[in-house]
Design a protein around this nucleic acid. Structure first.
Lengths: 152, 152
DNA sequence: CAAAAAAAAGATATTTTTATCTTGAATTAT
DNA sequence: ATAATTCAAGATAAAAATATCTTTTTTTTG
């Protein structure tokens, strides 16, 4: 459904949303370690996300990546669009080119409600809101993170 | 969630379940045309499925692929296991290595019920039963197929 | 039996995804 | 200013998924 790249991107942004701000930037190395993702690959992703205004960055000592208030107004869906494109997400679970209510594949009525739920979760909430719900309901972004939150 | 290969395989077997039997075998060419899948790729897949007893075949004139009664006792899940393996299917929607109720990713409680529903649909029904439900509820396996069913 | 048909097998090719490496540019702290 | 730090950019590499091609084997029909 989502590529690795997209999963990394989503988790990175949520991570930055929780742990960074203008005065507390985080380097790729740290992010990659915390989320247990391949570092150079993540660097490329963050580069792309920065170019597309989903993430902010500054160079130099104490530089790194962070989410600005504007960045936090975006949605998870914006990330998906940016990395995978919407096409991939909308594809039929069994690969039919035009699976819909009128000519549903054998699992259409199971898959469609799920997709709609995910979609509204991804599209209708800002990163800011999404993040506060993560914190409120004790969700995790990585196993390392999980332990960290537990110890808080 | 499922690879193209796996989607092709599932649709092929359902197609064979509907349209073939011991006395009415269908060649790759026909199947690939009907399902709108790449022919040589599908040939390889059917070869593998045949070797693993999920599909039956005979060579020579009037030969081709078909589903035996034994083949129909398998489940869709058997196909998934055979082509993609279970790992892929069970992976966390956001890529966490151990996403579960105890340490859920941000969309775990949306994704998990969906996966369970699909899983029980795939695992707890025989191909035979799955197929009869497809016919009863007018599901489709391809757009060509859709038209064919409409005209029946 | 010969020829044709169709799958089986194995080799190869292409594309996409994932990942890494190297060099350059910007920023900041000293 | 300068050195250290960190991201940016571009090139390259490796792996996986997708797709094709060629040859062989089996079967059937004429």
């Amino acid at each position: 459904m989502l590529s690795n790249a997209c999963k990394y991107a989503i988790r990175s942004i949520l991570y930055l949303s929780i742990y960074s701000d203008k005065t507390n930037k985080i380097g790729v190395k740290k992010i990659a370690e915390e989320l247990e993702t391949p570092q150079p690959f993540l660097a490329k992703l963050l580069q792309q996300l920065t170019k597309n205004k989903l993430v902010s960055s500054t160079k130099g000592p104490n530089g790194g990546f962070y989410l600005s208030d504007e960045n936090r107004e975006n949605s998870i869906w914006d990330i998906v669009e940016n990395i995978d494109g919407v096409k991939k997400f909308n594809q039929c679970f069994l690969g039919l080119s035009k699976c819909e209510d009128a000519n549903p594949c054998p699992v259409h009525y199971i898959a469609a409600p799920f997709k709609n739920k995910i979609l509204s979760d991804f599209r209708d909430k800002s990163i800011a809101r999404f993040t506060s719900e993560i914190i409120d309901t004790n969700k995790v972004l990585s196993l390392k993170d999980y332990d960290a939150l537990k110890l808080d």
